[in-house]
Design a binder for these strands. Structure first.
Lengths: 130, 130
DNA sequence: GTCTACTGTATGCTTACTCTATACAGTGAA
DNA sequence: TTCACTGTATAGAGTAAGCATACAGTAGAC
């Protein structure tokens, strides 16, 4: 393992822990914070750091492996995969994600966040690592 | 009831039905598609339209009532509330929503959506109803 | 007033999911 | 081969979503 990724989870939140881990590692991969060939901490190490069971981390790693972000093999440590080009999204996927974004924006506006704040956050997220 | 709101749900998706209903009605309220005083369909009517149990809709209405979007009273139909000004979001809420947006953007990019597409969708969502 | 037909509410059940505990199996260096 | 480390598989407890059903409030017709 060369450098543990910075992952933070909320234990009692509405989002499942394994999904939080998946989201954060995927974000790191997309942003370049985790490059291909990087070796990940073992399921037990990361689980101990986060204070959860290692099966929860194993589930997250498996999900990321299915998505193509990690290479997982029994008995060996886990590595970040070579970046494969994402396929062109389908029209149905676009519609689904569009609707999800729209609802999230509505929720943000309902909670008092300004359009400027939302634009700034989006630009910041599109800009790359931190 | 004066004009049923256009609501569509995905039955076998990862998002709970009652949450889909909450999200969509909240979006309609924010976008102006549902104005204060508008009477909503009864829990049984909307449930029949969507092909789900009326308790699922009742749960959604209750959630929206807690958030201040609907006025719910036993025995009477449900009305859209007067718009109250949202409170200034807390710093913690901002951090949480910021992180959520960042992960969602990363997931979109991982799925092949271009920054331009994302910006366009955000602008469209910020622009108002449809 | 009192029916009646409509509202939303409350409770218990089934199912699926999340997380954990524990036993198992593969890998590679000493 | 042995040993200490990997990830995997399966079963269980706890929780949440959705549904069935019985309940209680409201308001118009009579």
């Amino acid at each position: 393992m060369n450098g543990a990724p910075q992952i933070r989870i909320v234990l009692d939140g509405p989002t499942p822990i394994y999904r939080q881990v998946v989201d954060q590692i995927r974000t790191l991969c997309v942003d370049g914070g985790l490059k291909a060939g990087h070796s990940m901490p073992s399921v037990r190490q990361l689980a101990a750091n986060l204070g959860v069971h290692f099966n929860t981390i194993a589930e997250a790693y498996r999900t990321l492996a299915v998505e193509g972000w990690l290479e997982v093999k029994q008995g060996r440590s886990v590595f970040v995969s070579e970046r494969r080009e994402p396929r062109q999204p389908t029209r149905a996927a676009a519609a689904q994600h569009s609707s999800r974004l729209r609802h999230q924006v509505a929720e943000l506006r309902a909670n008092g966040f300004s359009p400027e704040w939302i634009r700034h956050e989006i630009e910041s997220a599109l800009g790359g690592p931190e």
